[in-house]
Every structure is written in structure tokens, then in C-alpha cells.
Nucleic acid binder design. Structure first.
Length: 915
RNA sequence: GCCCAGGUGGUGGAAUCGGUAGACACGCAGGACUUAAAAUCCUGUGGCUUCACGGCUGUGCGGGUUCAAGUCCCGCCCUGGGUACCA
């Protein structure tokens, strides 16, 4: 018997879509726009695994649904093509990263095509394409040529700053010069001053240096003191580096979160990363010392019993005096040299040293000792804190450890055991602050501090400027050259600055980045910058390029930018919360400020699809032997678990031993196996799907065995889109079974002869259809795709029971199913006699009249326990219904002769008899 | 530690507004068709109890609000994710 031939159907329709450019999007249209974007992948050598398509399928469903509803949908795909793995492969093999990248992209494209996504491939972009990175470089130049004006609260051209300097000089904490001074400065000095303001700037700063990778890393590329890529140790190092002044946008990045529809957890992650704290700066003095601290709790000023400074504090040398100097400096040196990682690992070890110096308390006659403590960070605030042990847990532990006084100044806690950190309570022991609440105390103390000119109200952010240069080859060259040591941007007309060919992809012998190997790496006889941009450069604006991908005059045409504006739905993983998703908001705000784009947030709505985890299979080697034991026996020995290829294991966790020997002959061909019941049983573990754990499931295999439509439906059916879930093919059969049943509805309940009737459907059949239209439409709007699949199953089961093969019912169902399972939908749509494809067919309209009921089968409950059901007309009078219930034989049984206190009737829902 | 999300059958999960807990699917058990297998179809399937009708119990734990709680409130426990001497 011929069956539902998914392999042929899927191949045919994929060819049809390609031939007819079915999903080509008009750049400008009369129709309303809808922009659905997937985070573009880095094309790795491992290819796609079944986890990648999860989000792509969901966004494809939304795109197709919007097309059915008459929107002009932009749904593109591309590649984040610069990156470390291709470069490391190049170092090992000498193969040019561009070649490796192209091969990988080709494979990704084949895999994506098999799943039937409705991407407009004519808009494909690659970040390593010079026609693309020309504009990444162009944006860098705009950043270089801009500064952030705090008065207008936006980025402006650097010339507006130069005008200010020319007219009135400059008077800030760090800089102080008159307009005459400015005019007299050398070009070099002017350049140095402007670099302190440019949004892309060169500065000497502590950076995260990874010796193993030979490059610096941004904060979000370091996790627990290790590099995110490769897991190598990272050190702090003072280097001159290009950075982007994202800190200027801290406040706007924070407040902007309130107007976008992103998940609360993701917004919270960004808020924490930006880390706003409101407080004040405050200077402490002695005769020859001045130390500035930052605090969020100026209300506790009378509780200060010592100052703590970071080991990196600039005034350290000055502060260490007489009998304490050697010991203190030795401590500071030791603390400084410990890596970030060590410092983090030893959080609970309290260490510190007294400097021997004192400062005066600002409001009373008291000397306050200055300590060095490694719990104070050199890179945050001023690198010094006023310690209030009674009301800060870290100060408390430190004070306890070194026997320093603890003075309570806010009532409400018990400071004999632990500090009282809460910002509630009445201020005590605090002179002019006594009796105030914490909130009022903060205001009052800041006022006092300001009037004495000791400090001022101030807001600090944790967000650091982003290091932008990488000592690597495979990235965008930074379009900057050095004329007499002064950094200058390329002329826009000379872009793109093409990545040069070099002989080796390693740093030079003198330790310079790979680009220093390039012949003639100069611009108008001046040396060009040799670091390249980080991976996140190209991904910070790519969503704009899709709007008009081949434009030669700008990132996109003004009309295209104005029409498409922003992303309506952005789909991607939450691992980018503090990296890409922050950077692309930053660049969007910048481009908005300089008038290039119409929106200052890139994505109105963001959905984080959950990760599909892999199930790894483990066998157990007895230590120091080549003997492997079955799962149940592993506790009898000292064993080491070994990951094996999941293809060698069946559904009952039985290992194919012959296959195992063939897989890794050197390891297993002569191994001994101890079995249970004649089988080698493996253990399992849920974790990341990765080549390394041999647990990767390739979507191509699933498409071969079950079909792309089944894969699409199954991935949606697994559970809520946002949840993480382990991949398992248990249950995929059920989805294929459903598609076969659907197919059979059109084929006279065999799978062969197409047979639909033009007879008028019954009321019951219409009801099933409209119930489904309603449910699917609502579910798509709520991104609840797992329940849509189940609704389809219910619908098909019900129609099958009615043996329904009416065209008037089945044809609209094809349209409903088409976003989810587009290939079978196209096939059935065409069998129904349609000559145009289904992709732009009108979405069926829900007609509520088909669902109107005039009776309801009420559950009758007694004290909340449902006992039986009774049918009543929905328009029946409550009195009448009550009487009927009371007269009912079964009611009498449950009343047990008692008089009901009350009868609650909820129309169309339930009846509750209260006894 | 702090922040966020979550905890429902053997499994994945459903219950969108406080109104019949367990939809849909997997798995399992039994049956039909078949020489057989595959495919397909039918029946059953939270637990305890009962020949059966039925009864009791049940959404991490302990309280509470309500005619009615998986859903709301209070207090805990556990899991996953993020983040951390950030002053």
C-alpha cells in the first residue's frame, strides 16, 4: 500500500519554494510589516544538532502565520562568521579561516534547507563578507567620531565637544583647562584629551588577558576566571586597548528595559549586569591624606569604624607608615598578585593589613584607621570604602576577625551575632541624623556632606566599558591608523579595510597580533591598527542589514530602515543576556542618537527558547584495567565513566559491543566486558549536546527517518518553548502517526486514493473546525506551540470518529497546519485542487456561532466534591435549576436528609451544594 | 548569599480568569485483523480499596483565605538558571 511519502513530498515542495522564490520579501510594501528574527548561528564544524532548530521552528511558525494573515514578513537568516574556532583550525592546519567558514556555512545551509524554513535567502548575510564588514567598520568610525553629551543625554559628533573646548575650556574632576589652553595644546595633547570622550577610544586599562588564547577578552567572555571559549585561565593585565564607552549608556540601557517585552529573568540579568547603585562620594582627610570613598549608605556615617582600601589603591604607598609599612606593603603585593580566580575561590578567607594611617571622621572628633583589604575591589567605585561593620556583612566579618569596633547606628537588628544590613529602621547614636528613617537619613546626610564640600550625591554602575580590540586574525580590522602616534579614523570612502592575507595566523615573534605580519599594512604611509574587532561587533547591528542587505550607500536605505524599524519578534538563547543582547541594544541606541535609525530599541519582543539537552551514554572502566562493567555492577569496583557514542546504544540502554569495538578499536577491541544478564548496560546523563560527549543528534537523520514535518511538530510538542528539555525520540512516533491520520482523512481512510467530498458539513463537523481555528490562533499568539500540536491531534481524532472527509472542513485545516508542517500542507492543498501554493492562503476566520451551546452538562458538587453531572439549558432560571437539583434522586442521597445551607450556581461551569 | 524561573501519573506535559486535576502523546497491559511481521484499529491505564456499584485519597511540605485552591496568602524544603566580596 502506498503511504504518506514524506521524503518525496518534502523534497518536491522544497524545490518548489526555491524555484518560485516563495519567501522573497518586498523591501517596501503597502502591507503592514512584521520582522521575525532568529539569532544567527556561528557556523561551527560540527554542523547543526537537533537543539538548533527549536527556536528556528518556532519563529518559522510565527512567520508563516503572519504571512497567512496578510503581513509583509521579513524572516532572514545569516551567519556570525568571524570567530575563534576557524582561526584555531587555521593555526593547526594552515587552512584559511575563510575556507573553513565557507565549508561550514554550506553544510549549515543544507541542513537548514531540509527542515523547510521559510527564510528569504536572497537576504543572507555573513559578517566576514567585506560588503558587510565595511559597515561594521563604518559604525566604528561613527563611534570614534562621537562623544556622549550628558547635557543632551545623547551621542553627538565630537566636533560639538571641540567647539565647547574652544569656547569655554573644560573644568571637570580630571581635566581643567581654559579655552586659551586648548588652543595652545599640541595636536597630540588634544587627541589624548578627546580620547577620554570618544565612544570608541584607546586607553590604558586593566584588561582580561588570556595567555593561552593570546588575546584580551570582554567581561562577559570570562566566566569564573576562565575564558568562555576554551576554558583557559584569565589574568588581569594593564594594556593599551581599544574600548567602547558602553558605560555612557548605562542609564538608558537600564530604563529602556521597561518598554520592551523580554522575559523578566533576562531583564533582571541585564539589570544586575548594569548594576546601578545610588549613593554618594565622600572624602576623608588627615593632614596629608585625602581618601575618597563611594557609599550607598551615607546614613550610617556615624557607624564608620575604619576605612578599607583595595590592594591596588593608588595612594597605598603614601598611606603605609612607620612600624606597619613593610608588613602592609607585603600584604598588598601578595593580594594583588593573586589571580581573580584565587580571590574568588577564597572569598571566605578574611585577610587584611593595617596601614598605620588614620583619617578624621567628618562629623566628629575621632581618628579612623585605614586598612588594606582584598574584599575591596580596585576596579569599582573609588577602590576604597567606609566600613560600617554593624550594617554591612563584609565589614562585620572583617571587624570581627581583626577585633575592630562595631557601632550600631540603625535600630532593628541584633548586632551581637550578625550585621543588620536592611534599609529599614530608625537611626540612632548619630547626632543630627538621630530619629530619622534610613531613607530620610540618606537624603539628610548627603545634604550635609554636600554643604561641607566633602562629597556629593553620585550614582555608580557596575557596567564596565567594553574592550574592543582582539589580538587575533579572524575578525574585522579596526579602521584606524597612527599618524605620528596619533590615532586617526580612516576616511569613510576608503572602506572596507580588507582583512589582509598573512603567512601564519600566529602572533609575531615580538608578540604583536597576527595582522602585524601583513605586508604593507599601512594607510597613506602610516601604520594601521593591528588588533581586530571582537566576535560581537558584527552581531551588534546585523538585524539592520537584513532590511536592505546589498545597499552600497549605507547600512540600509533610509526607506527600508523607516519601514522595518525594529524586530517584532527576536528568538534566541538566554546565554547572550549580558553579551550580544546588551551590545546590540547599545549600538541601536547609538545609531538612533546619530539619526541613522528610527528606533532606540532593536527588539520589541524577545523569546528565549530553552536548550535541548543531550542524553549521554556512559560505560564504566575499572580503574587501571581494560575491563568494562555493566551499569548495575559499577559500584563493586573503582570505576571511571567513559562517554560513548549514543548510536551504539538502544532504547533499553543496551550497548552494541561489536559496534563499540569497531567505533574505537584501539580502546575496545581487546577489552574485557563484565555483563549483567548477558548485556552491557550503560548509564545515562543529561547535559549539553556536544561532539565532545558523543551525544549529538543530527536533524538530517531525523528528517530521513521521520520527515521534516514530523521533526518540526515533534520539537514543538516536546513542551513549552522556553523550557530546557533533554532530547529523546520517545514519542516522535506519535507525531508521525498523527500526520498519517491527517493524511488518511483526505484519502478515504486508506493512504492511497485522494478522496474529499464537497458535501456540506454537519454542525458537529463545523464545531470541530472552529474550535480548532480558535485554539490554534490563540496558541500561536501565546507561543504555546506544544498545545497547538495537541489541539491538532484532538481535531483529527474527532474528525476520524465522524469519518469526515468534507472539503469545507479539511481545506481550512490544511492552512492551519501549514505553519507547523508546511510540506504535507502544500501537498494536500494542491491535491485539493489549488494551483497557488498554500503559503499565502488566507488564515481561516473563526466564527463563534458554531461554538454556541444551549445546554451544559453541569458537574454537581457537594462541599466542593463533584459527585455526578446533570444537563441544563444555559438560559435556565437559577431558581428552576435549584429546584430540579434538589428534587434529583442522587442529590437526596448526598444530602443525607440535611437541608443545604446554600446552592452556588456558576453559569456554564459548576454547581456547588453547601451542606 | 542575592536575583529569576520552576516542583502535577511510569515518562514528556495539559488545566490561559479560583470552578470536573491528569487534555494530548509516549510507555505499558489486553484484544481485533494477519500464516507471520509491520502498519492500523479497539479497550484499559494516578494511588489505595471493592466481585461490582462505589468509596477514600491525590498537584514538593506545613498552615491559612474561600461555597470551591495545582491556581490566591504566610512559612519552609528541593531543583534549574543567572550573579557575586559592586560598598
Amino acid at each position: 500500500m502506498a503511504t504518506y511519502e514524506f521524503r518525496r513530498i518534502e523534497k518536491d515542495w522544497q524545490a518548489y519554494w526555491a524555484k518560485h522564490n516563495t519567501f522573497k520579501t518586498e523591501t517596501i510594501s503597502e502591507k503592514e510589516k512584521y520582522y521575525v528574527l532568529d539569532m544567527f548561528p556561528y557556523p561551527s564544524g560540527a554542523g547543526l544538532h537537533v537543539g538548533h532548530p527549536l527556536g528556528y521552528i518556532a519563529s518559522d511558525i510565527v512567520s508563516r502565520h503572519k504571512r497567512h494573515n496578510g503581513f509583509n514578513v521579513l524572516h532572514p537568516m545569516g551567519y556570525d562568521a568571524f570567530g575563534l574556532p576557524a582561526e584555531q583550525y587555521a593555526i593547526q592546519t594552515g587552512q584559511h579561516p575563510a575556507l573553513t567558514t565557507d565549508e561550514n556555512i554550506k553544510r549549515y545551509r543544507e541542513q537548514l534547507d531540509r527542515i523547510g524554513f521559510s527564510y528569504d535567502w536572497s537576504r543572507e548575510i555573513k559578517t566576514c563578507d567585506p560588503n558587510y564588514y565595511k559597515w561594521t567598520q563604518w559604525i566604528f568610525i561613527q563611534l570614534f567620531n562621537s562623544w556622549y553629551n550628558p547635557k543632551t543625554n545623547k551621542a553627538e559628533n565630537i566636533q560639538t565637544l571641540v567647539s565647547i573646548f574652544e569656547e569655554s575650556g573644560c573644568e571637570t574632576e580630571d581635566l581643567n583647562f581654559s579655552k586659551e589652553d586648548w588652543l595652545g595644546f599640541s595636536e597630540k595633547i588634544k587627541s589624548d584629551i578627546l580620547l577620554k570622550y570618544r565612544l570608541a577610544f584607546l586607553s590604558e586599562a586593566m584588561v582580561n588577558w588570556c595567555p593561552e588564547l593570546g588575546t584580551v577578552l570582554a567581561n562577559d567572555e570570562v566566566k569564573d576566571g576562565l575564558s568562555e571559549r576554551g576554558g583557559f585561565p584569565v589574568e588581569r593585565k594593564l594594556m593599551t586597548q581599544w574600548s567602547l564607552r558602553i558605560s555612557a549608556y548605562a542609564e538608558r540601557l537600564l530604563t529602556g528595559l521597561d518598554k520592551i517585552d523580554w522575559s523578566e529573568s533576562l531583564k533582571e540579568a541585564q539589570r544586575n549586569w548594569i548594576g546601578k547603585s545610588v549613593g554618594c562620594s565622600l572624602k576623608f582627610y588627615s593632614e596629608n591624606i585625602e581618601i575618597e570613598v563611594f557609599t550607598t549608605r551615607p546614613d550610617t556615617i556615624f557607624g564608620v569604624t575604619y576605612l578599607a582600601i583595595a590592594p591596588e589603591h593608588p595612594s597605598l604607598d603614601l598611606l603605609c607608615v612607620n612600624g606597619f609599612r613593610d608588613q602592609a606593603l607585603e600584604y598588598a603585593e601578595k593580594a594583588k598578585n593573586r589571580s581573580e580566580r584565587e580571590r574568588q575561590a577564597e572569598v571566605k578567607n578574611i585577610t587584611g593589613a593595617f596601614t598605620g594611617s588614620f583619617v578624621k571622621h567628618p562629623f566628629k572628633n575621632e581618628q579612623i584607621p585605614i586598612w588594606i583589604a582584598d574584599y575591596v575591589l580596585g576596579s569599582y567605585g573609588t577602590g576604597a570604602v567606609m566600613a560600617v561593620p554593624a550594617h554591612d556583612s563584609r565589614d562585620y566579618s572583617f571587624a570581627k576577625h581583626f577585633n575592630l569596633p562595631i557601632r550600631e547606628v540603625v535600630s532593628g537588628g541584633d548586632i551581637s551575632e550578625t550585621s543588620y544590613d536592611a534599609k529599614v529602621g530608625e537611626i540612632i547614636n548619630s547626632d543630627f541624623l538621630n530619629g530619622l528613617s534610613v531613607k530620610d537619613g540618606i537624603k539628610r546626610s548627603i545634604k550635609e556632606i554636600e554643604s561641607l564640600k566633602l562629597g556629593f550625591g553620585k550614582t555608580n554602575y557596575r557596567l564596565r566599558d567594553a574592550v574592543f580590540g582582539r589580538q587575533r586574525y579572524w575578525g574585522e580590522p579596526i579602521p584606524v591608523f597612527y599618524e605620528n602616534g596619533i590615532p586617526k579614523a580612516f576616511s569613510e570612502n576608503d572602506l572596507p579595510l580588507i582583512l589582509p592575507e598573512i603567512d601564519k595566523y600566529l602572533p609575531t615573534e615580538s608578540g604583536e597580533p597576527p595582522l602585524a605580519r601583513a605586508a604593507n599594512w599601512s594607510y597613506k604611509n602610516n601604520p594601521i591598527e593591528t588588533t581586530t574587532m571582537p566576535g560581537w561587533a558584527g552581531s551588534s547591528w546585523y538585524f539592520l542589514r537584513y532590511m536592505d542587505p546589498s545597499n552600497n550607500n549605507g547600512i540600509a536605505s533610509k526607506q527600508a530602515l523607516d519601514y522595518w524599524k525594529d524586530i517584532d519578534l527576536y528568538m534566541g538563547g538566554s546565554e547572550h543576556a549580558t553579551g550580544h543582547l546588551l551590545y546590540f541594544r547599545f549600538w541601536t541606541k547609538f545609531l538612533f542618537d546619530i539619526g541613522i535609525i528610527p528606533s532606540d530599541e532593536p527588539a520589541k519582543k524577545l523569546i528565549n527558547q530553552g536548550m535541548i539537552q543531550g542524553l549521554s551514554c556512559l560505560i564504566y572502566r575499572v580503574n587501571q584495567t581494560s575491563k568494562f562493567v555493566s551499569f548495575a555492577l559499577k559500584n563493586q569496583y573503582e570505576t571511571t565513566p567513559i562517554h560513548i557514542d549514543i548510536k551504539l546504544v538502544n532504547a533499553a540502554n543496551e550497548v552494541d559491543i561489536e559496534g563499540l569495538k569497531a567505533w574505537r578499536p584501539s580502546e575496545f577491541s581487546s577489552a574485557e566486558f563484565e555483563l549483567e544478564n548477558g548485556k552491557l548496560i550503560c548509564g545515562t546523563e543529561v547535559g549539553k549536546m556536544s561532539k565532545r560527549w558523543h551525544n549529538v543528534v543530527n536533524p538530517d537523520d531525523v528528517c530521513n527517518d521521520y520527515g521534516a514535518d514530523t521533526l518540526r511538530l515533534y520539537e514543538m510538542f516536546l513542551g513549552p518553548l522556553q523550557d530546557a528539555k533533554p532530547w529523546s525520540t520517545q514519542g516522535i512516533e506519535g507525531v508521525l502517526r498523527f500526520l498519517r491520520k491527517f493524511w488518511r482523512l483526505f484519502h478515504n481512510n486508506t493512504e492511497e486514493n485522494f478522496n474529499v467530498s464537497i458535501e456540506a458539513p454537519s454542525k458537529a463537523e463545523f464545531k470541530i473546525l472552529h474550535k480548532t481555528i480558535k485554539k490554534i490562533s490563540e496558541d500561536i499568539d501565546n507561543f504555546s506551540f506544544n498545545t497547538s500540536v495537541s489541539a491538532f491531534m484532538v481535531c483529527v481524532n474527532e474528525l476520524q470518529d465522524l469519518k469526515c472527509n468534507k472539503k469545507e472542513i479539511l481545506e481550512p485545516l490544511v492552512v492551519l497546519l501549514s505553519p507547523f508542517a508546511p510540506h504535507i500542507a502544500e501537498e494536500l492543498w494542491s491535491l485539493c485542487g489549488n494551483t497557488e501554493g498554500v503559503s499565502y492562503a488566507t488564515w481561516p476566520k473563526f466564527q463563534p456561532e458554531y461554538l454556541v451551546e444551549n445546554e451544559f452538562n453541569y458537574p454537581i458538587s457537594f462541599n466542593g466534591k463533584v459527585r455526578f453531572n446533570l444537563n441544563f439549558a444555559l438560559d435556565i432560571d437559577n431558581k428552576e435549576m435549584e429546584a430540579s437539583i434538589l428534587n434529583n434522586e442522587q442529590t437526596q442521597k448526598y444530602l443525607e436528609g440535611k437541608e443545604p445551607k446554600k446552592i452556588i450556581i456558576v453559569k456554564g461551569k459548576i454547581v456547588n451544594v453547601v451542606l
